[in-house]
Amino acid sequence: MRRLARALAILAVTGVAAFWYLTAPRSEPVENLTGLAGDAGRGALVFAAGGCASCHAAPGAEGAARLELGGGRRFASPFGTFVAPNISPDPEHGIGGWSVADLVNAMHHGTSPEGAHYYPAFPYTSYARVSLQDIADLHAYLLTLPPVARPSAPHEVGFPFNIRRLLGGWKLLFARHDGPVVKDVPPEAERGRYLVEGLGHCGECHTPRNALGGLDYSRWLGGAPNPTGKGRIPNITPAALDWSEADIAYYLETGFTPDFDSAGGEMAEVVKNTAQLSPEDRASIAAYLKAVPPVRDAAQ
């Protein structure tokens, strides 16, 4: 009996140690970052493609105010309400003190400079596919934006989701680091794949999630319930989206659908960003969407 108790105790200690080890926040190996220099001009495009302002600008901000990244937008979810933090270059409340490595750890690994896990409301599962050079350029650009001296508001997340360490387990289960989602695409769709799967983080809304909030990669871009509760985020695989490539590219430029309705909802916000990309980038996104495996809508 004493031996059993001892065995159980050892097992428990090993289990806790394994949990602690496996759920530790990861960071980028330093050697990957040496010699990386950011270009703020190129970073402006990364910023647009990444849709940073859509979440981190003040709610309803237009024009120049979209570059004031004081945060405050609220995102309701089944796990609680997340509040976008201040990522302006304010040294106290924002990311003014961050190095390139800090931004890489945030975007690739969901790890804060203090070594804590971020919630995946910040789409690091997608941003993990963004190149180190793009992150360095983005870092240089972010530092040129106006500082906002306002503290970030805390997330409103209840037990057990408020235990950040558990996110290490979530990342193990759901954060993939095995390269592109769609492995085979024609050369003209490669840039589009990078933009859709990485910076654009399109899959975060257009792909359904499981009960724990992990993306269902078998239904990649196959449409999902709208987190606001009204309507659905559409299926944009070739099984449902029958627009021509020119139509898709034009929609991303102007917001006009082929029958000249216009984008609404969150997509109106997205088009503000895609309108800033080059015509070649938009065309490549369209080519990628044609190359994605079709996902049939489940019978209702």
């Binding site: 309803g60 237009e62 709208n226 606001t228 009204k230 309507g231 659905r232 430029e253 102007t254 917001g255 006009f256 216009s262 984008a263 609404g264 909802g265 969150e266 997509m267 109106a268 916000e269 088009v271 503000k272 309108a275």
Partner: peptide, 21 residues
């Protein structure tokens, strides 16, 4: 000049139009 028209349409649709059911 047509892009900004689309942007203006979208600004109002984003704020005041319900998503398609």
């Amino acid at each position: 000049s047509i892009g900004p028209v689309g942007g203006a349409c979208g600004a109002c649709h984003k704020a005041y139009r319900e998503p398609q059911q």
